[in-house]
Design a binder for these strands. Structure first.
Lengths: 141, 141
DNA sequence: TTTCAGATTTGTAATGATTGCAAATTTATA
DNA sequence: TATAAATTTGCAATCATTACAAATCTGAAA
């Protein structure tokens, strides 16, 4: 989801990350779009602007962001890892036709799970799959 | 989650799958355990019993089960695909210490998401990560 | 029972995402 | 300006998964 951050450099510094050009640009892509880009997406988008960019840097940087709690990992497909700069609890919906992943808010708070009493929960993920309204109109589903 | 199925062969046939020995055994592992095994797990467990078993067969068979709606795929880690023969809506909790994935029931029904109106939902996934009660006692978390 | 066609399984090679690692580059500091 | 530390890069290695063709099995027809 689109994150409104005035100063990305400061945002990274506050999280304990030195804002290099690569880190700034990668984070901006994550924060300033409704996409949930893959490593490949990020690399392709940034390559023209930073021709020396290495895919390894994208991987390293995302790992770093993750370690500092700035991104969450979205594992909907087993062959496609996506990243989201919005780490607040929200759902993801993936359309199997157009392939887009969109966010949705989850109205009520999470239920307390009896069988998990005593556990420490550090991450919550909720996602749905199906066919989005737009694709349903275009196809016959 | 443990599935109580009297006749696995019939269960497969009813789903339109001819029950070969490999298919039967693979499905039994999925249904008759609380684990959520990976391809590697299944292959390792079955190899002694079916020495000629190929890992490709495990992959193919799980794809087939999936196509016929007999298993759901669990993507919690991006490098670890797990399978569950219980396809009813329920949650998964992964402990980051011991690595176990357990099931939990989700009490209330799913909320209707306003922004997904018009979409067709075919799959729902809900999972949590953290540290299970047992591991919290053993460690200092 | 034998034969044959189709289904299933198998082994190996290919693919593709991710990681390891060491060299090159950049940045900050003295 | 010199130097050390941090960061980036490129390439090789790893690992899960898939593609594919050969081998095997199964079940029906003769």
């Amino acid at each position: 989801m689109l994150l409104k951050i005035e100063n990305v450099g400061q945002y990274l510094r506050d999280a304990g990350i030195k804002p290099s050009i690569q880190r700034l640009k990668i984070f901006e892509i994550l924060a300033k779009s409704y996409e949930h880009p893959t490593v490949e997406n990020i690399y392709t988008q940034l390559s023209p602007e930073i021709p020396t960019l290495s895919k390894t840097t994208v991987y390293n940087t995302l790992k770093l962001f993750q370690k500092h709690g700035l991104v969450m990992v979205i594992n909907i497909e087993d062959n496609e890892t996506r990243y989201d700069a919005d780490t607040s609890f929200h759902g993801h919906f993936k359309c199997n036709v157009c392939g887009k992943v969109s966010d949705f808010n989850i109205p009520n708070t999470q239920p307390l799970i009896e069988s998990l009493k005593g556990s420490l929960i550090t991450e919550s993920h909720y996602y749905l799959k199906g066919i989005c309204a737009k694709c349903r109109l275009r196809t016959d589903n």
